[in-house]
Design a protein around this nucleic acid. Structure first.
Lengths: 240, 240
DNA sequence: GATAATTTGTTCGTATGTATC
DNA sequence: TGATACATACGAACAAATTAT
């Protein structure tokens, strides 16, 4: 790594170009940690500030991201997740050539609380199946969700989902060939310990919480879901 | 309401927890007036000052607000902000009986960067007006935004906006009677120091970042905006 | 759970070269 | 030529977040 001093291009620009090249040609693949500042500064034989100037520019250009106490990481593009009339986890991911996976964490029989009942348009106390799942993209946890279904309409839904590993396929099993999303509520907050663990992310990074209701062809609510998304791994797209 | 005296937790902390629980479980629903200090003090069998300590902490935590001469009120839910085909800041807030205000922080003449240019469908380098604004609800900062407009199409737009204090009114001045939102991108992250200051919120609370493009009746992009929202003060609604 | 080590973030200070008026 | 402003580069120290011990 020899830099030309005093020949037109500044040192930090040469370093930036050098690192950009390494990122683009895959020497540092997406998600990879760069060597620490100290090492890079040594390698380029410059002061740490000079090196930081180059890195800061790469951060500004969104090629890398900096994490205090951890290091610099090559940015992997966020998953772009479309919130349209039809929302399908697998479709959304396969459009971006990512491998989608849904896993059943656990399930439970519960009674509908006021809020959940309102969304599903049932009486409070109605028996519901709550399934907790985790959604992954290319093996990386993307979201943890709680799905609520009427037990009467979808008996043993947990078994079906456990076999298929897909909400869409599960609904198909119950004769629902198409379903659409009625409404989505979006908020952001900090995760609790369990959420951070399930998402394999730091507790100091925010999560996005989406509440949604899916309805069948007749407009009857069939699923109420609360999904917690790792905020730095996803970007939602609303087309209106 | 029996408090434990001399057993670790101070009285006012016990009272605070007690009231928090009542608020969270809906005993005191959003917007409700709490019983007056005197009554609460009697009920907990403590001095009014002890009770005030608890209430002051709830005010600090933004669970209740105090109004001199009127009483304490449970803070209402977050602002619910609809992301529909037509998005109007004032309309969205007035629907919830909140007082909307937009303020111009500063403005600058800039050259379109690649990303901005793409969204506005202009060539990179095109002269743009960037206005930074802050949106408030009931006097509380809700979002800080950067709006980008073509300088050619909207000369002196900063003056118009400065006078009207409304994006909608500003567009009307330029003959645009209706505009709609094409796309909104949503992410969440932690705020930087400047954003936290402008939003008057803690740096340890997340923000929601919305990128959006508004188009005129002919479908031509007229505004590209990046808005940073205080995540704990707003909930977005997507109807699909 | 507490402590130390590692790593990035921030703020001083100093010096030099370059462009502008 | 001088004065000024700005970008570049190096050095030292400390703060803050994370990870390892």
């Amino acid at each position: 790594m020899e830099l030309e001093r005093g020949k037109g291009l500044t040192l930090w620009r040469q370093i930036q170009k050098n690192l950009e090249q390494d990122i683009l040609d895959g020497t540092f693949p997406p998600g990879e940690k760069l060597p620490p500042e100290r090492l890079l500064a040594e390698r380029f034989a410059v002061n740490r500030h000079t090196l930081r100037q180059a890195l800061n520019n790469l951060v500004r250009k969104e090629l890398v991201r900096a994490e205090q106490g951890r290091g610099y990481f090559v940015r992997e593009d966020m998953v772009r997740y479309a919130l349209a009339h039809r929302v399908r986890f697998r479709e959304n991911l396969s459009r971006q050539h990512r491998e989608a996976a849904e896993e059943l964490l656990d399930w439970e029989l519960v009674q509908a609380e006021r809020r959940t009942a309102e969304h599903l348009m049932v009486h409070p106390g109605t028996p519901l199946v709550r399934m907790r799942t985790v959604g992954k993209a290319d093996g990386l946890s993307l979201c943890v969700s709680s799905h609520y279904f009427s037990q009467q309409r979808f008996p043993d839904i947990n078994l079906i989902y456990g076999n298929t590993g897909s909400i869409t396929a599960t609904f198909r099993h119950f004769g629902i060939t198409d379903y659409t999303r009625m409404q989505t509520l979006i908020t952001a907050r900090m995760p609790n310990a369990a959420e951070a663990r399930l998402l394999q992310q730091s507790r100091s990074k925010p999560v996005l919480e989406l509440e949604s209701v899916n309805v069948d062809g007749a407009g009857t609510p069939i699923e109420y879901g609360r999904c917690i998304w790792a905020a730095d791994r996803v970007q939602f797209i609303v087309d209106t």
